[in-house]
């Protein structure tokens, strides 16, 4: 239990700060550069993104684990009605993953848009057309893709991510996006009062600022491996006393 919690904590911290989605993985740059002019709008956008990314991650984890991955339970069951059981167990629908994910994201955005319109009308007005544009926010699709690779891309089925880890990655990534966009909004509000050379006004100076921010965040590299070493129980490097079993091919 404790090691599970430590794992979750490290995944969340890593996604939010150390491998920040915007400043390290370069996803979510378009809203990062487009919506970061005022702190209040930036924070609202960040919260909307966290909401969408959480729903999208849950949807994509569930669909991948139960329908899309090779040998997934639901697909194997349905295929078992048309094919012999052996062929049905090997059914692999991962070719449809990207299409399924983007439609899951579009639905989550639709849902969040209705929610924001009902409960936060001023935010809805402030975000305007940027709210439906969250569909094209790379950060959300990126989170879904990472979750997919942690389910289908691992050699060892016991290492495949469960829903808790997937959700933590998504929410951590969303929080990292919010942190980055709010910092950027704060800096840009200050930059408005400065004398920026004409060619650099607007997007160019924002990018250079992002570069310096990214430089700062690079200072966090290696924190997660250090934390992991400090928090995990010391592994025993001496040979095991119990006999190990050999699993068949």
């Amino acid at each position: 239990m404790l090691s599970y919690l430590i794992d979750i904590f490290l995944i969340g911290v890593s996604a939010a700060i150390i491998n920040n989605f915007v400043l390290y993985y370069f996803v979510g740059i378009c809203p990062f550069v487009g919506v970061s002019r005022k702190i209040s709008t930036a924070f609202g956008m960040g919260c909307a993104v966290i909401f969408v990314i959480a729903i999208a991650a849950v949807l994509s984890w569930t669909i991948t684990a139960y329908i899309l991955m090779p040998g997934a339970p639901l697909s194997a069951y349905v295929a078992g009605m048309f094919m012999p059981a052996e062929a049905a167990a090997g059914i692999d629908l991962t070719i449809l993953s990207y299409i399924v994910y983007i439609f899951a994201i579009a639905s989550s955005v639709q849902f969040v848009e209705m929610y924001v319109r009902k409960f936060f009308p001023p935010l809805y007005k402030a975000l305007g057309v940027y709210l439906p544009l969250i569909t094209t926010n790379c950060a959300i699709l990126f989170a879904c893709l990472v979750i997919m690779s942690k389910i289908t891309g691992v050699d060892n089925p016991a290492d495949a991510w469960d829903l808790g880890r997937a959700l933590t990655l998504a929410v951590g990534g969303g929080i990292g996006f919010t942190i980055a966009i709010v910092i950027m909004a704060g800096i840009r509000e200050e930059l408005n009062l400065c004398d920026v050379p004409k060619p650099f006004q607007g997007v160019a100076i924002a990018l250079i600022t992002a570069g310096i921010l990214s430089l700062g965040f690079m200072g966090f590299t290696g924190v997660d491996s250090g934390l992991r070493k400090a928090m995990m129980p010391k592994p025993e490097v001496v040979a095991q006393a119990q006999p190990a079993t050999e699993a068949g091919k």
Binding site: P197, A204, G211, I212
Partner: peptide, 14 residues
């Protein structure tokens, strides 16, 4: 590394 990407792009855009 990531910072270089932002800086290069910003300078070229300018």
């Amino acid at each position: 590394l990531p910072p270089g990407a932002f800086l290069t792009f910003g300078l070229l855009l300018g």
